[in-house]
């Protein structure tokens, strides 16, 4: 049996694909910024914060890193309403993504913080800086410099993993493919096109992240 490829059948749905792509990009961008913010706070708490805060962050990190993302997503979308927290599909997707990246980036950034030589912290102390000032001005940027490649990879992983949010009908790129193939039965074409879009998006993101790294960090 020979399958006749017909990518032309996707054309009428170009706007669905475009909307899905836009949602995936925005979802990734927002959860990257918020997730890394959360991860920075978590890593700071684990290394420079009080003990109890470190433990609390530890529980959060292990909870998220040892459960599947789709379960976290379902918990946020289907589970939280039982507690009276009702979220739209998009809100649930954003929240789950931020919580997920927050946990992973906490550990990545913590590794960076711990790789900063102890002598730099002592130098900061000797200059009468407070622990917060040392964290903010001495440690943080160095830590990000050290783990930036790992962090970049994690952002891409999260972007690809965001396909899962289609399972709660958040209208991302994968949702678009599901939608299109359910209408025109062109599953191969729809998923092929979407796979290609993910690939291009990942390549573009790597380039952008590398560019940001060059811009922000001195060449040392």
């Amino acid at each position: 049996m020979i399958y006749q490829l017909s990518f032309g059948d996707l054309l009428p749905y170009w706007d669905v694909l475009a909307r899905g792509l836009a949602f995936t990009i925005i979802l990734t961008a927002v959860s990257t910024v918020a997730g890394i913010g959360l991860g920075t706070a978590g890593a700071g708490a684990r290394t420079f914060g009080p003990k109890w805060a470190g433990y609390a962050v530890g529980v959060y990190v292990e909870l998220i890193r040892n459960t599947p993302f789709i379960v976290q997503l379902f918990f946020v979308f289907f589970g939280l309403p039982a507690l009276g927290v009702k979220l739209t599909e998009a809100q649930a997707a954003f929240l789950a993504m931020v919580i997920n990246l927050g946990a992973y980036s906490t550990e990545i950034i913590r590794a960076g913080i711990e790789a900063v030589p102890k002598g730099h912290i002592e130098a900061g102390l000797s200059l009468a800086m407070s622990r917060w000032e040392i964290f903010r001005y001495v440690v943080l940027k160095q830590a990000f410099m050290k783990v930036y490649p790992a962090l970049s990879s994690q952002i891409i992983i999260v972007m690809l993993g965001s396909a899962v949010v289609s399972q709660i009908s958040a209208e991302d790129l994968t949702y678009a493919a599901n939608f299109i193939q359910s209408r025109n039965f062109r599953a191969f074409e729809a998923y092929f096109a979407v796979a290609l879009l993910y690939l291009l998006l990942a390549i573009a993101m790597r380039a952008v992240l590398r560019g940001i790294g060059r811009l922000v960090f001195p060449k040392v």
Binding site: S126, A128, V220
Partner: peptide
């Protein structure tokens, strides 16, 4: 520490 400065064996300059 505002009155006591210190210089270290390993310099400890902030590389960034």
């Amino acid at each position: 520490r505002r009155y006591v400065g210190m210089v270290f064996q390993q310099f400890n300059l902030f590389p960034h």
